[in-house]
Design a protein around this nucleic acid. Structure first.
Lengths: 347, 347
DNA sequence: GCGTTTTGATTAATCGTTTAATCAGGCTTA
DNA sequence: TAAGCCTGATTAAACGATTAATCAAAACGC
């Protein structure tokens, strides 16, 4: 009862033109030895018949599926749309399809998701690892997008440099006491960003770091971060390690009656979808996801093309780190030596 | 130079056990006539050899790829992570893989993206259409997730009922003047939500609708929505048609010195990632994406299994609309008869 | 003009799976 | 006991593409 795939196949074209299938295949792929005119005649006829090569037939013969897997263990990541879009675009340009695999944020099922992809015969995988998990090399080439400081990383944004850009921006605005707000201390990405901020500060500057997840473990999920208190302690800038945390900080400050950027400044990372539309719009740092995806995919494709034997390996690229770009918007401004709540403190 | 796919295949198992490939295939699929003990022996041996069936071989023979396509023309949609996750989960449970296609928000290239999927031999597609675009039936079964009021829709959240839930919630809190904030008037989803809100209002209530995109076309992208003025006009509740617009409203109000929910209430839609963590956390309406995806995928898979002939058609499901769930958080509260800015007006 | 290379095409095998058709026995039944 | 049926397996033919091997004829060199 197998549905006979609609549309023409090689042999239909071949018999229709009175040549052999091999010739048709060669003419279309440009590989064998076929005379110029015949090539043209075949191509023309194939086009007008609307010939679409069967991926299945090709895959079976060549052992290549023409499909890449995309593994995002932390799919709730708000960056996901951008990442998926960029990877799909790069893969598509290289003639590959993209199969997604999700492990519902569960690190334990990450392996399971990867196996699903392997079973589907992907030729390679792009993995954006969750937190500090290491990718045990699978049965196919793997490109890892994490941070330049992670061993085995293929390509990533230069989170460290992004952090430095934030620090320099805030320093230039006169801020001297900066509160870094991160989510999880075990994230390579967040650690690099925090490290970059600290390293970009001037000698007379001071920073503290607030890890939300640790705080929530003690106080409870969705608890206030106590930023008004921090303002009273003299912090004039809040550098979040993601726009999500920046948003959380911004709204908490606003609710406490603290005005951004007049009283204090808030910055984020990633230029997520809401960054331009909140009031005040968020100063943030954007990563060039298109470039990163392009590098990862082409490194992957190169490895696939090179290796006739299908083996697991972490691929490498020439460019390992891609610069991040500072986007200055309204949420950062000159440091205010005497913010509002300080006055309130004096009342 | 085709890489000889690693791992065992049917014939390896067959020769190793001294039986024919057909018997092995039958034993593993449970289809033909094989004695119980032999079935067990074969299964056991296959498992210990770590046999993984070749999708390519199977696809070639059956004409089925075991892959579904997911088309999200509006990939910037912040719901994308949830949707992709839910579809992938449902598809995976049904034994299907998910191939993504993106048209970079461009309606014109939507057809191109769909064609890429067809060329890759997907057995069916799930399409979340952008705005009011209609899906011309492709060369395979298509499930559409939009709104129940859209012709050709397979399954969707009951946006209308979600809107009613919001309206009733606000009515119960004493709000009588509601500003509905949407992005685009041509979106079926947003229209249904707005309609639901209006239909859920009590006779003594009044609403106006603000379409952001139209406003921005006149004033410019990222412009203020002028909500403080609306507060002065007596609106006490701002019902956004998406959490993104709710966030925009919330921060603009906060920046204007209006306190939420003490002065006015703000509600959203979709329960996006930031909704629980902003201050005040957002009252919103959540759609059961898992259920919607499950219905869409199983309708699709049923159609695929039924139709031996591969033809294009919009699939239908028994359940067409899935109820939305109101999530009450901090951003909505009792109506304040004399909000702050009214007082300011008197000064 | 004869041996040799080049050109342009064909033949046939192969990838791994599914499945219709076939077949050899053992069992039933009249 | 012979004809027929069920059971448990095998055989072989696809599916559609790629590609190594082959081959005939033409072009070429000396």
């Amino acid at each position: 009862m197998a549905s006979p795939r609609p549309g023409p196949n090689l042999s239909k074209i071949a018999t229709s033109l009175g040549v052999s299938v091999a010739t048709v295949s060669n003419a279309l792929s440009g590989k064998g030895r076929v005379s110029g005119q015949l090539v043209e005649r075949i191509r023309e006829h194939a086009a007008e018949l609307g010939y679409v090569p069967s991926q299945a037939g090709r895959a079976l013969r060549t052992g290549r599926s023409g499909v890449l897997g995309l593994v995002l263990p932390d799919i709730a990541n708000p960056l996901f749309p951008k990442i998926a879009q960029a990877i799909e675009f790069a893969a598509s340009a290289a003639g590959y399809g993209v199969l997604i695999a999700d492990s519902r944020g569960d690190v334990a099922t990450q392996t399971e998701a990867i196996n699903r992809l392997i079973e589907r015969g992907v030729d390679g995988m792009v993995v954006i690892p969750r937190r500090a998990t290491r990718i045990s090399s699978a049965a196919c080439p793997v490109a890892v997008i994490d941070t330049p400081s992670t061993p085995g990383n293929t390509v990533a944004a230069d989170h460290w440099q992004g952090g430095q850009a934030i620090a320099e921006h805030l320093a230039g605005l006169g801020h001297r006491r900066i509160l870094i707000i991160g989510n999880n201390q075990e994230s390579n990405v967040q650690n690099d960003r925090a490290g970059g901020i600290r390293s970009g500060m001037r000698p007379d500057m001071h920073s503290e770091t607030l890890w939300i997840e640790r705080l929530e473990q003690n106080i409870g999920s969705g608890c206030p971060l106590g930023l008004a208190e921090k303002v009273r302690q003299g912090f004039t800038a809040f550098a979040a390690l993601s726009d999500l945390q920046a948003l959380r900080a911004l709204t908490e400050l606003q609710q406490a009656g603290i005005t951004v950027p007049a009283d204090v400044s808030v910055t984020g990372f990633d230029d997520l979808i809401w960054s331009p539309v909140v009031t005040p719009s968020l100063t943030t740092v954007r990563m060039d996801m298109d470039r990163i995806a392009g590098i990862a995919v082409s490194a992957l494709v190169d490895t696939i093309r090179r290796n006739s034997i299908r083996e697991g390996m972490l691929v490498t690229a020439e460019t390992e780190r891609v610069a991040m770009q500072l986007i200055v918007r309204q949420s950062s401004g000159p440091a205010n030596p005497a913010p509002k709540t300080s006055e309130m403190e004096n009342m």
